[in-house]
Design a protein around this nucleic acid. Structure first.
Lengths: 137, 137
DNA sequence: AAAGAAAAGCAACGTGGTTGCAAAAGATTA
DNA sequence: TAATCTTTTGCAACCACGTTGCTTTTCTTT
């Protein structure tokens, strides 16, 4: 089973909450906020458990955080090139103003930006808001 | 006096807190967080007043918010092309990992990003972290 | 200077997130 | 499979950040 595999690969013990939360990510196309998880996990887990589980997943490189224009945090699955303690998020994030969903545009890599003399870039976050393809027409 | 001018131009009544807070922005090169303002205003104003003042300034297009990778909010002065109710922030933001300062790179415009078919961009936020020119060498 | 309008201060509240600790569940060994 | 050890969960309490309602104070206008 895929979920258990992922947890084992990351040396995490297999618990109900981890299975449930990881399952939510695997079954969701867009990113999830803490509140989405709390809602969809169905009253079953304490919020502290959800916070801790998300933190563990981030630490292990299973999910990554997405900063949004309205300053809430969302989480999405990482691609294979994220490993423990080191994320490689070189893709653009998109937030739809209509449906509110946030997506990782994995195929859109962050553009090069020419900085003024003296500045050294290390990480670049690009968050685009607008209308997503599901809401448009 | 410049401060009073700005307030008048934006049809704001001239109060101590507005003068003080606007002054902090005018005298600071980088962006300011709520906490910076609370500290530098010198115990003089209630936190609620600071929140409301910042909100008014944002609404009037005097300052704009900057989302940071660590999900705190910072504020910086807008350039002249921001007007009430409509911000035009087409520049890149830079956060220094060493000194923690955040700067508006007004000369660096946000790059064009080619989105997948069906997505319509509306606003693009680019936040770069790294080492700023003051900390580098 | 007086009256009306706007802003400040205060208290209280809500939300999002964290911490410490005891109880429960998972992993491991025999 | 049961016993032990380790990890995780749930709970309670707490803190930081931000908001709201209302009264008092300060600005503005005449």
């Amino acid at each position: 089973m895929q979920i258990d595999e992922i947890l084992k690969t990351n040396q995490l013990s297999i618990t109900d909450s981890r299975k449930k939360i990881l399952g939510l990510f695997l079954n969701s196309y867009g990113a999830l906020a803490h509140a989405d998880i709390e809602k969809n996990a169905g009253e079953k887990f304490d919020r502290v458990t959800i916070y801790r589980t998300l933190q563990v997943f981030v630490d292990k490189g299973i999910i990554h955080t997405i900063p949004t224009p309205d300053n809430s945090i969302k989480y999405a699955l990482c691609k294979d090139d994220c490993v423990e303690g080191h994320h490689h998020d070189h893709h653009v994030h998109f937030q739809c103003k209509q449906c509110g969903n946030t997506y990782c545009l994995d195929d859109v890599t962050t553009p090069e930006v020419k900085l003024p003399k003296g500045y050294a870039a290390d990480q670049i976050e690009v968050v685009i808001s607008g209308i997503c393809k599901n809401c448009k027409q």
